[in-house]
Amino acid sequence: MATDEITQKVSDRYARAASTGEQMCCPTNYDMASLQSFIPDEVLKISYGCGTPAGLKTVSPGETVLDIGSGGGIDCFEASRLVGPAGHVIGIDMTDTMLDIARKNAPIVAANLGYTSSNVEFRKGMADAIPVNDGTVDLIISNCVINLAPDKRKVFREMFRVAKVGGRFTISDIVADQPVPQYLVHDADKWGDCLSGALTLSDYIAGMAGAGFLGIHLIKFSPWQVIDSIYFFSVTLTGYKLPASSYQSDIRYATLRGPFSRVVDELGTTHLRGIPQPITPDAVCLLSQAPLASHFVLSSDPLWLDRADDRWTAVYPVDAPCAWQGHFAMLAGPFAEAADDDHHVYRRGEPVEICSKTLTVLETDGYAPHFAIINRAGQNVSGGAVTCAPNGACC
């Protein structure tokens, strides 16, 4: 299908849903009891998405927040409460029916929050041509919308353009564990279901990195559905538009604490656990961001760590046979590549088959926040135990 045809069909589908109250899409987890206290039911009943980006405590008072594909306004209105009366929220959407509902309810929400006037405005626009000035947004949010855009890389570039230096995004979207085949790409109904336009996790993160964002990492992961052996799942991701190399600091070295034994950061530098690595001012800025900062000791002089140091972290595999049960792990940041202590190498977004022993390691607190794990087994499998090879590379 042509790009314009995709856009029109998606817009028509959501306009119809807004008029009829049709339920659409994906796994959400709104705190409806809280939202009902200030958001009208007319908005709540047409709130579609696959996450709650504005409700993840990513919003700070006084900030300017942009919501791409704001629909009836639920995420904008939640952001409105979080930024407070001194903040500003901009919602953009391409569907007139949605915009009409959002605009009608904006003053009602403001009154319910005790504001003298609404701090939310809704603009008609496209995700790949955002009607917002350069460098004016502190936080970009989006809830299951970017997968609907035919040219996602253009959307990512637009996001980078409007973000302030030091700004960030927190977006929820549907991705897949493998490329979506053409027979689904050209299925108009599946576009509206957030399936046909889904990228792989690898391509999604690569698109954001290609636009200039850094520190891209996973906030939340939720399995959704399987169609023709393709696993679709919801992710919430955060990343930053960091300052250029003018960043000033006395820090000259970074020492990886763990739990990974080796990582490659997004600037291409390899770090080995416990060994100080000279870093550039750009790397200082990157590694100072959450969650990377928790994995490193930054210092002005070289600093070595060993197992006796409290700052050294590791999760070692148990010395036992493992079983294959259909699990695959995908590194979802904040590193381009990482290795554990059992010789597994993970490249961001690429599925790696793992055994039961490795699954146990990746489910620990040190690893779990950085991985999306799916099970591709079509049925329950016994996965008979096997013994690792002499070099430890069982997987």
Score class of each variant (00 low, 15 high):
V137R: 09
A206R: 10
R123W: 09
V297R: 13
V180W: 03
P53M: 12
V226A: 08
V109S: 03
E22Q: 15
V352I: 13
E266A: 08
T280W: 15
F221R: 00
A110F: 09
I130V: 14
A385P: 02
P334S: 00
A293M: 14
V165Y: 06
I171H: 03
H295E: 13
V132S: 06
Q178T: 05
E42C: 04
L195C: 14
C25D: 06
I74T: 05
V315Y: 02
A2N: 09
I171L: 14
P278H: 14
D4H: 14
M1I: 04
E158H: 08
E5P: 13
Y115N: 11
A102W: 06
S37V: 05
G384D: 15
A188H: 10
G212M: 04
V381L: 12
G87L: 02
K190T: 06
V235G: 03
P317L: 00
I92K: 01
V137K: 01
P53Y: 12
G349C: 04
D67K: 09
I374N: 01
V185T: 14
T64Y: 11
A129V: 06
V180P: 01
G135S: 15
H327S: 00
T255H: 07
G207A: 09
K220E: 11
A198F: 00
S234M: 05
S299M: 12
T95I: 12
H217F: 00
D67R: 08
V162I: 13
N391G: 09
R252N: 14
L35K: 14
D31F: 12
R262H: 15
N380P: 13
K152S: 00
W191E: 01
D177C: 05
Y30I: 04
L44G: 01
F232K: 04
S229N: 15
I146T: 11
T3E: 12
